[in-house]
């Protein structure tokens, strides 16, 4: 690969090595060059195998590649691929609270994604707190739970705690004497209407996915409030 800099730099390059290298020094530099080239080549090869679709070689050496790549070189360049997301996923939350007068109530659903959308609208610099936090937390939950909502491991448990705290942070209900007991989340997935010229079916009705009620812990109440 050409850096386009060769010609202009040649004059300056001369002052870098004023001393003629002795034979052992030349050997050391040659061996070093070999080692550095091997290291760079290996690194790029492993990055390629990590980024490419699972294939004969990468499946055989999955453990080695994972060991090298995680956690610092993890990467994913499937921007809107193979197919872009075709749904707007709205994450909504409701809560069971005790009002100051002692009445126990279930609040109506609050659309947290709509709050994000409102913050992003006409904003030239959307914040990660609005564009990524909830959206990716919901993905994280989906990736670490089976269809019946059972956690598939450590990350699943973390995802539940994360979503619950996020809900408490966004609801901000436990003030003025109101006590927050439990929260419930759901997603409402609406398909984007296909383009008029495509001649496809109009989208089906929104799909709801409701999670269990989760008890709010005292430490959840210490979460940073976002509004």
């Amino acid at each position: 690969m050409d850096t386009d800099d060769g010609r202009e730099r040649e004059a300056e390059a001369g002052n870098a090595a004023p001393v003629a290298l002795s034979r052992p020094a030349r050997w050391i530099v040659a061996l070093g060059a070999l080692a550095v080239a091997l290291a760079a080549g290996t690194h790029l090869l492993i990055m390629f195998l990590h980024v490419a679709p699972p294939n004969t070689v990468s499946k055989q050496h999955a453990a080695t590649i994972g060991d090298y790549v995680l956690p610092e070189y993890e990467q994913n360049w499937k921007f809107f691929a193979p197919n872009p997301l075709q749904q707007n996923i709205a994450v909504q939350v409701r809560a069971q609270v005790t009002r100051p007068d002692g009445e126990v109530q279930v609040t109506p659903w609050t659309d947290l994604s709509a709050q994000d959308g409102a913050a992003i609208l006409h904003n030239p610099l959307p914040s990660h707190a609005q564009q990524n936090q909830l959206r990716r937390a919901w993905d994280f939950y989906g990736n670490t739970h089976d269809d019946r909502g059972r956690s598939t491991g450590l990350r699943g448990d973390l995802a539940e705690d994360y979503l619950r705290r996020l809900a408490v942070s966004r609801l901000n209900l436990d003030r003025d004497g109101t006590r927050l007991h439990r929260v419930q989340l759901r997603s409402v997935t609406t398909s984007v209407a296909p383009p008029a010229w495509a001649g496809q079916q109009p989208p089906a009705k929104p799909v709801h996915r409701e999670l269990d009620w989760w008890r709010v812990t005292p430490s959840d109440l210490g979460v940073v409030r976002s509004w």
């Binding site: 490419a52 360049w77 193979p82 075709q86 707007n88 994000d116 984007v192 296909p194």
Partner: peptide
């Protein structure tokens, strides 16, 4: 990689893919 994965997608093949991100609220 970004190009490679896109080629495998049916919406990139029929040329409607970009329509969808332009309709996502996020």
């Amino acid at each position: 990689a970004a190009g490679w994965y896109k080629i495998q997608g049916s919406l990139w093949q029929d040329g409607t893919a970009l329509y969808y991100p332009l309709h996502l609220d996020y």
